[in-house]
């Protein structure tokens, strides 16, 4: 389990877990679950298009991630945001299925990109993941307070440069960067699950924002590590365990909340 080729898996998965956890904290407090689902999923056509055009996969992923951010952003200006997100998602996926159909080798590609293949990660893929993840995490930590403030009310942010709309866009771009690098290694589903599960539990464990963010990262790491161990042992897909733990974490969080709020009823 800790052999040479597994070292890459542990490294990349941990990097992805930390960044996805950080992004997830803001995803949950900003109510951006749909965007967090849409962006990783609509990044996947990029990989297929890159194969079709014979260019480096990284470029395909970045372009697709960029297109989905632009799509959500541009369509939201004219209509309901949830509809805009849905339309962006289906259009990107539609393009993805077209590209895949022209490549052949269809089903295995779909499976790998959607659900991930954490085993057999090459050493070369560690560097880009590490660089982009550190950049994304750094950007999120820099924007910590403005993101928190604008999630209370978009009118509270009154500075000239950091407007609520720009902040929304910045958040989507960070989300897209983190998704683009994580996708080929761990799959769209795993990225998304890590962005909602851990944070949904952490927010109920503590009321302090900085600590809640730390707890999110911790739960995210534990989820990924446990999932890798179980996946290694059972040979079942890692996404199954990550998704399951996400739901368990959410349930546990609700339980903690209930206990915290519970007051013994007066004896009559």
């Amino acid at each position: 389990m800790f052999s040479d080729f597994m070292i890459n898996t542990w490294t990349v998965a941990s990097l992805v877990a930390v960044t996805a956890g950080l992004v997830g904290f803001f995803t949950v407090i900003r109510g951006a679950s749909f965007a967090a689902h849409t962006i990783p999923l609509s990044t996947f056509p990029g990989a297929a298009a890159a194969v079709l055009l014979g260019v480096n996969q990284v470029w395909g992923l970045i372009v697709a991630a960029g297109l989905s951010v632009i799509g959500i952003n541009a369509l939201s200006r004219r209509g309901q945001p949830d509809v805009a997100t849905a339309m962006t998602l289906v259009m990107m996926l539609g393009l993805g299925t077209l590209c895949l159909s022209q490549i052949g080798q269809y089903s295995q590609q779909v499976y790998a990109l959607l659900f991930g293949q954490v085993f057999g990660i090459s050493r070369a893929s560690i560097t880009p993941v590490a660089v982009i993840d550190i950049l994304a995490a750094g950007a999120l930590l820099m924007l910590f307070r403005p993101l928190l403030l604008s999630s209370l009310s978009t009118d509270l942010l009154q500075t000239r440069y950091l407007t609520a709309t720009r902040l929304d866009l910045a958040f989507l771009i960070i989300l897209a960067m983190a998704s683009a690098v994580a996708l080929p290694v761990v799959g769209a589903l795993l990225v998304f699950s890590l962005m909602v599960g851990p944070a949904s539990a952490a927010r109920n464990i503590t009321s302090r924002p900085v600590i809640a963010m730390g707890v999110t990262v911790l739960i995210s790491l534990l989820t990924v590590w446990t999932a890798i161990v179980l996946s290694y042992v059972t040979n079942w897909p890692v996404g199954f365990f990550v998704g399951g733990f996400g739901a368990l974490a959410y349930g546990a969080g609700r339980g903690v909340m209930r206990i915290r709020r519970w007051k013994p009823s007066p004896i009559s």
Binding site: L141, R145, L152, S207, M257
Partner: peptide
Amino acid sequence: QLDPFMPLRARDVVALGIDGHRLGV
């Protein structure tokens, strides 16, 4: 938008009034 699940204490909201627009944690 103050939903009950927001991990934010009353004093954190007031502190954001001082430096909520600043960068960094």
